[in-house]
Design a protein around this nucleic acid. Structure first.
Lengths: 216, 216, 216, 216
DNA sequence: CATGAATGAGGATTCATTCAT
DNA sequence: TATGAATGAATCCTCATTCAT
């Protein structure tokens, strides 16, 4: 797949290291301050390039933002994609997803912050067009999982798999935010105490139990 | 409790109808455009008062925003508070909560939009200080519920009530967003189809089933 | 007629003296540097107001420019209108026009500079829409004059009055530029010598002779 | 005469075809957008060379503009020069000039647009230094013509030949603009109707009649 | 107390010009 | 000599905030 599709050709020609520095700078700024309070000049400064160059690579602020969002969602897709591909037991997969979230939400904190910010925006059509593709991937993934679930659980309840996939994802989305966004970090602390953010094992075990119960 | 605590004294002295008009105007603008793109002058215009007056009532933009957030969270607290006070069967209460969310997320759409926007902000300390109080209320509420749950379900699993309360609230938070915020509306549609947003009965039934499974 | 029609209402409410200062400042800047090199901040400075205020009065640079052009053409219309209204002999009227040009081209030098600049622009449709109305006025005026001319000159030649009105105006337009625009001032000097610019009597006499010859 | 005097030596060494392509590109851009809105990078692109090269040939934007103006005026000079050289009857020469204007104003539309734009500029000294030379040529030409006129017309009026040369040129200058510049095209239409721009015969006949009358 | 005109710092964007390759 | 990516000063415009009336 073509990398950085929304960026100008010029951008794709520059050294990858430089590209990454720019992306990192933009991601940092957008995740930190949100779209409208992000400062293009600061991004250029952080990336050690001139504003002029930034505008050679990206048509305008929107276009840079779009690109950052695309990259972030693409990254998330990739991470999740890897998990599903492996043929495991249903709850082993779910456990892997939880652990993947715990790892990546911290590693790519800014991406998840951005994701949260993005969903708060009001040009939903535009946002949905790009970010929605991640949801599409996860939706399919969970649909498959739930198919497994219904077979695996002998005493399987009769539930609508689409709804249950939705609930499952809801739990995952808020887990992501709870590890990456300040507000949700506080909220997590309030619910389960100061230590919760670092005790990944307990979180994983409890969430798994919650989900198992719901499905079987 | 003192109403509109962050507002200047002057604000509390003006007729309530005028107060409401101002709050409505501000809520509308902040929910629609987010904090930084919200326009103070437009708020004044919509409220049919002068900017000068607005600045007599509220020290600055932050302060007005703070007030709006306070009011919104206060409203949510009240709504939820009413539900808990009633002494019902565990799952009857949960059902009531779900139905309350479905009703209020639509009725006070702007408040929930604001709530979502708020959580994306980075001055988490400030935000948490006010918005966190809602979470406090719900946390207590859910703790009580889960106490009931563990008694009610004979074959009660051994789970950490704090974690389960957290998961429960996660499901509720995303349900709220799914009825009020554009992005999450789209996401809901994607998961369960176009009709989902209006078929409250099905959503309620499925979510109840999901939660019941998790708890018992 | 409503003054300064393209300006915002706010502008029409401020004291006339202030209005005039702003118009003068803008006229100066646009006439001096042309549209694109005119500096909005310098206009504000010259008018002793803030940029913010300028943007309250005029939506944007284009709008301010439009207004300046409108005012200038309106002024020209008025000047010419006064002359025609008087019922004189044909060549007395022409003489009056010439003298009016000599006087006003110097008095409102910037307006005529602007007019020249305007005609060099490439958004001809827009420009024509406003500036064309002056031409309309003069065209009618000259048509009337030429009607007189054809009757007055016994041995009147058979000519197309529309074409002759056109030629007449051409002579007037370049006379205006010759008194107000640097380039055309130089050109005039080259043709008739250094003194020409100040010897209004000679210019008037010669041009009158030229026109008389053409018409009779 | 040295071609392209203001350009660097480097420019004069490159193949003529390349030179022409560059000149055409610059003329197009300057005529279309005026000096300050003309875009150097777009000129380079249109000429199929790099900006770097353009700056090897011309010191800066001003210098390129200067060169374009020089070339344009040189071309006009040449065109007019050819007409005068022929020994004809006075009004046959004038007719030839009119027809030459009609032809060239359309053929070299951009040059005349540029000429109009140029005269609107305010660095009159610089502009006059180059463009004035065309005026010099025509002035001489017309002086000679008018000498003829005074002899040829038996009942010759006593007029100042310098003034009459000036008026004659004024008529020609505006005729040029009326065939090449958008604003003046509109103006012509308004005076003599839609068809005027294409009915060269009628224009020629009427203008000739006008001038004949003025001179004889 | 109410008003709303005035302020001006701040930020997105452009484009002539340079210079390393 | 040719290239075209990089530069950053310059400029339009917005909007939170103030203050004279």
């Amino acid at each position: 797949m073509m990398k950085y599709m929304t960026a100008n050709e010029t951008f794709r020609k520059i050294p990858e290291e430089k590209q990454n520095k720019i992306i990192e700078a933009a991601l940092h700024e957008f995740a930190q301050y949100g779209y409208s309070e992000a400062n293009i000049n600061k991004i250029a400064e952080r990336a050690n390039i001139s504003v002029g160059s930034l505008y050679k690579y990206f048509n305008d602020k929107q276009n840079l933002y779009q690109t950052i969002v695309d990259i972030s969602t693409e990254t998330l897709k990739t991470v999740l994609g890897q998990i599903v591909s492996e043929e495991d037991d249903l709850f082993e997969i779910i456990e892997k997803i939880i652990r993947a979230i715990q790892k990546h939400a911290r590693l790519h904190e800014n991406m998840f912050k951005l994701y949260n910010e993005m969903t708060a925006e009001n040009n939903s059509e535009l946002t949905w067009k790009t970010a929605g593709s991640v949801e599409g991937v996860t939706a399919e993934l969970y649909a498959a999982l739930i198919g497994k679930a219904q077979k695996q659980c002998v005493a399987g309840k009769e539930f609508d798999p689409r709804y249950f996939a939705f609930f499952l994802d809801n739990l995952f989305v808020l887990l992501q935010f709870s590890y990456s966004c300040e507000y949700y970090k506080e909220r997590l602390k309030m619910y389960v105490g100061e230590s919760a953010i670092h005790d990944d094992e307990l979180m994983c075990a409890q969430l798994l139990k919650f989900i198992k119960g719901a499905f079987c």
